[in-house]
């Protein structure tokens, strides 16, 4: 089939008109995050030892959990792609990876800001949670670079799927690093631990609401990025 014939086929093929990338779900996500800002700033008590800087917790930790969700979706959809070779799962994996990189960037900027004030250090390479999170950022960035560098669609999806699965393997090590390594700056978990959360009720409520809001934001951004991917593939198909 010639290029002209391919273009003709693409033009004649009925395609759903591209929807707005942001929809009602995105609006709910935005409102939820604004609500968390208001609750954390005005309606959550200030911690006695750290002062107001402790409120970074309500963004930093939910962003980290959002990054885990996004990278987890990337790995899961990559497995689905390797199994079924469905391009939609590859596109969803790509969307989740990009959103995961944004969430990891939030984690890696709020963390040093908080650490500089409370620990007296922007960074400590011997804190494995910090260093492994940076490694995860690099792997997810590499995933997106690899995708940008491979022309062949099937090869791109296959190679990047393997990278995504390897990236997701880091997540349990990041979470468990505070148990595995004695030398660390990060404290032991106060919520995600075997026994009861050790946060006061008002703080715990803000944290749980923030986790919910960031999870909704994560899904909303993945949906929006997926739609950008659909538009890009439609444009590429028409141009080929």
């Amino acid at each position: 089939m010639t290029n002209a014939q391919v273009s003709d086929a693409a033009l004649s093929k009925p395609q759903a008109p591209p929807r707005a990338i942001f929809d009602w779900f995105s609006a709910i996500a935005a409102l939820a995050v604004i609500g968390i800002y208001v609750r954390a700033i005005y309606f959550t008590p200030i911690e006695r030892l750290q002062g107001a800087a402790q409120k970074i917790y309500y963004l930093h930790v939910p962003a980290a959990l959002g990054a885990y969700i996004a990278v987890g979706i990337t790995a899961l959809m990559s497995l689905v792609y390797l199994w079924l070779h469905d391009e939609r799962s590859d596109r969803l994996a790509e969307a989740a990876a990009e959103v995961g990189l944004v969430f990891l960037t939030v984690v890696l900027t709020t963390g040093p800001l908080w650490g500089h004030r409370i620990w007296g250090a922007w960074w400590a390479w011997w804190d494995m949670r910090l260093t492994l999170t940076l490694f995860l950022w690099f792997i997810v960035a590499a995933y997106l670079v690899v995708r940008g560098g491979i022309e062949d669609r099937a090869m791109r999806a296959r190679y990047s799927a393997v990278l995504a699965i390897l990236a997701a393997l880091l997540i349990p090590f990041i979470h468990l690093s505070v148990y595995l390594f004695q030398a660390r700056l990060h404290p032991m978990p106060v919520v995600l631990k075997p026994d009861r959360p050790s946060l006061p009720p008002e703080m715990l409520t803000t944290f749980l609401l923030s986790f919910a809001a960031f999870s909704v934001l994560c899904i909303a951004l993945i949906r929006a990025r997926y739609r950008v991917g659909v538009l890009r593939d439609m444009a590429a198909e028409l141009a080929s």
Partner: peptide, 30 residues
């Protein structure tokens, strides 16, 4: 209690900027 308000303000602004910039980039690409 130590005053760490500026640090927390900076973090909240940075987070809003990162997510805002990403949303604008998605809209612009679309």
């Amino acid at each position: 209690m130590i005053d760490t308000t500026s640090t927390y303000h900076a973090a909240y602004i940075v987070v809003a900027l990162i997510f805002g910039a990403y949303a604008v980039s998605l809209w612009s690409r679309a």
